[in-house]
Amino acid sequence: MALNTPQITPTKKITVRAIGEELPRGDYQRCPQCDMLFSLPEINSHQSAYCPRCQAKIRDGRDWSLTRLAAMAFTMLLLMPFAWGEPLLHIWLLGIRIDANVMQGIWQMTKQGDAITGSMVFFCVIGAPLILVTSIAYLWFGNRLGMNLRPVLLMLERLKEWVMLDIYLVGIGVASIKVQDYAHIQAGVGLFSFVALVILTTVTLSHLNVEELWERFYPQRPATRRDEKLRVCLGCHFTGYPDQRGRCPRCHIPLRLRRRHSLQKCWAALLASIVLLLPANLLPISIIYLNGGRQEDTILSGIMSLASSNIAVAGIVFIASILVPFTKVIVMFTLLLSIHFKCQQGLRTRILLLRMVTWIGRWSMLDLFVISLTMSLINRDQILAFTMGPAAFYFGAAVILTILAVEWLDSRLLWDAHESGNARFDD
Score class of each variant (00 low, 15 high):
residue 1 M to Q: 00
residue 1 M to V: 01
residue 2 A to T: 13
residue 2 A to Y: 13
residue 9 T to W: 09
residue 11 T to L: 08
residue 13 K to Q: 11
residue 15 T to Y: 13
residue 16 V to G: 10
residue 18 A to S: 11
residue 22 E to G: 08
residue 22 E to W: 14
residue 24 P to I: 11
residue 24 P to G: 13
residue 25 R to A: 08
residue 28 Y to H: 13
residue 31 C to Y: 00
residue 42 E to S: 12
residue 43 I to Q: 09
residue 45 S to R: 13
residue 46 H to Q: 11
residue 51 C to R: 06
residue 51 C to G: 15
residue 53 R to I: 10
residue 54 C to W: 00
residue 55 Q to F: 11
residue 57 K to W: 06
residue 58 I to E: 09
residue 58 I to N: 08
residue 62 R to V: 07
residue 63 D to S: 15
residue 64 W to I: 15
residue 65 S to V: 10
residue 66 L to N: 12
residue 66 L to F: 10
residue 67 T to L: 14
residue 70 A to L: 15
residue 71 A to G: 03
residue 73 A to I: 13
residue 74 F to V: 10
residue 75 T to K: 02
residue 77 L to W: 07
residue 79 L to E: 04
residue 79 L to G: 05
residue 79 L to W: 14
residue 80 M to D: 09
residue 80 M to W: 10
residue 82 F to D: 05
residue 83 A to Y: 04
residue 86 E to Q: 14
residue 87 P to Q: 07
residue 88 L to R: 01
residue 90 H to Q: 07
residue 91 I to R: 01
residue 93 L to M: 04
residue 94 L to I: 09
residue 95 G to L: 06
residue 95 G to N: 06
residue 98 I to Q: 08
residue 106 I to H: 05
residue 108 Q to K: 11
residue 110 T to H: 03
residue 111 K to F: 02
residue 113 G to A: 13
residue 114 D to R: 06
residue 117 T to L: 02
residue 118 G to W: 01
residue 120 M to T: 04
residue 122 F to Y: 15
residue 123 F to K: 01
residue 123 F to I: 01
residue 124 C to Y: 02
residue 125 V to N: 01
residue 126 I to M: 09
residue 129 P to M: 06
residue 131 I to D: 00
residue 134 T to F: 14
residue 136 I to Q: 09
residue 137 A to K: 09
residue 139 L to H: 01
residue 141 F to Q: 01
residue 141 F to M: 06
residue 142 G to V: 06
residue 146 G to L: 03
residue 148 N to W: 03
residue 149 L to Q: 11
residue 150 R to H: 04
residue 150 R to L: 03
residue 154 L to T: 06
residue 154 L to A: 03
residue 157 E to S: 13
residue 157 E to Q: 15
residue 163 V to K: 05
residue 164 M to K: 02
residue 164 M to P: 01
residue 175 A to P: 03
residue 176 S to L: 06
residue 176 S to Y: 04
residue 178 K to S: 01
residue 180 Q to M: 12
residue 182 Y to D: 08
residue 183 A to C: 05
residue 189 V to E: 07
residue 190 G to H: 03
residue 192 F to K: 14
residue 192 F to T: 13
residue 196 A to F: 12
residue 197 L to V: 04
residue 199 I to C: 14
residue 199 I to P: 09
residue 205 L to E: 15
residue 206 S to M: 15
residue 206 S to N: 15
residue 211 E to W: 06
residue 212 E to V: 14
residue 214 W to F: 13
residue 218 Y to H: 04
residue 218 Y to T: 05
residue 219 P to I: 08
residue 221 R to Q: 07
residue 222 P to M: 08
residue 225 R to L: 06
residue 228 E to L: 10
residue 229 K to T: 08
residue 229 K to A: 06
residue 230 L to K: 11
residue 231 R to D: 03
residue 233 C to D: 01
residue 233 C to A: 00
residue 235 G to A: 05
residue 235 G to F: 03
residue 237 H to D: 07
residue 241 Y to D: 06
residue 241 Y to T: 01
residue 243 D to T: 07
residue 248 C to Y: 00
residue 248 C to N: 00
residue 252 H to P: 01
residue 253 I to W: 01
residue 255 L to N: 03
residue 256 R to Q: 03
residue 256 R to I: 09
residue 257 L to P: 12
residue 262 S to N: 03
residue 263 L to E: 06
residue 264 Q to I: 02
residue 267 W to V: 05
residue 269 A to I: 02
residue 270 L to I: 15
residue 276 L to Y: 04
residue 278 L to S: 08
residue 281 N to H: 06
residue 285 I to E: 00
residue 286 S to V: 04
residue 286 S to T: 06
residue 287 I to A: 05
residue 288 I to E: 00
residue 289 Y to T: 03
residue 290 L to Y: 05
residue 293 G to L: 06
residue 293 G to S: 07
residue 294 R to M: 02
residue 297 D to Y: 03
residue 298 T to P: 13
residue 299 I to C: 12
residue 302 G to A: 06
residue 303 I to R: 00
residue 305 S to D: 01
residue 307 A to D: 03
residue 307 A to S: 05
residue 308 S to T: 06
residue 309 S to E: 06
residue 309 S to P: 06
residue 309 S to H: 04
residue 315 G to S: 13
residue 319 I to P: 14
residue 321 S to W: 00
residue 323 L to P: 01
residue 328 K to E: 00
residue 329 V to F: 07
residue 331 V to D: 01
residue 331 V to A: 11
residue 331 V to G: 12
residue 332 M to H: 10
residue 332 M to K: 07
residue 335 L to I: 09
residue 335 L to G: 11
residue 335 L to R: 01
residue 338 S to M: 14
residue 343 C to D: 13
residue 343 C to T: 09
residue 350 R to T: 14
residue 350 R to V: 09
residue 354 L to E: 09
residue 356 M to A: 13
residue 357 V to S: 04
residue 358 T to L: 11
residue 360 I to L: 13
residue 365 M to R: 00
residue 366 L to T: 14
residue 367 D to V: 00
residue 367 D to I: 00
residue 369 F to M: 04
residue 372 S to Y: 02
residue 373 L to T: 04
residue 374 T to S: 12
residue 378 I to A: 01
residue 379 N to W: 02
residue 379 N to R: 13
residue 383 I to D: 01
residue 384 L to V: 07
residue 385 A to Q: 08
residue 386 F to R: 00
residue 389 G to S: 02
residue 390 P to V: 06
residue 392 A to V: 03
residue 393 F to N: 04
residue 394 Y to A: 02
residue 395 F to K: 00
residue 400 I to G: 06
residue 400 I to P: 03
residue 400 I to Y: 05
residue 410 D to L: 00
residue 411 S to P: 11
residue 412 R to I: 00
residue 414 L to D: 06
residue 416 D to K: 08
residue 417 A to N: 10
residue 419 E to I: 12
residue 422 N to C: 15
residue 423 A to R: 08
residue 424 R to D: 15
residue 424 R to C: 08
residue 425 F to S: 15
residue 426 D to A: 13
residue 427 D to H: 15
residue 427 D to E: 10
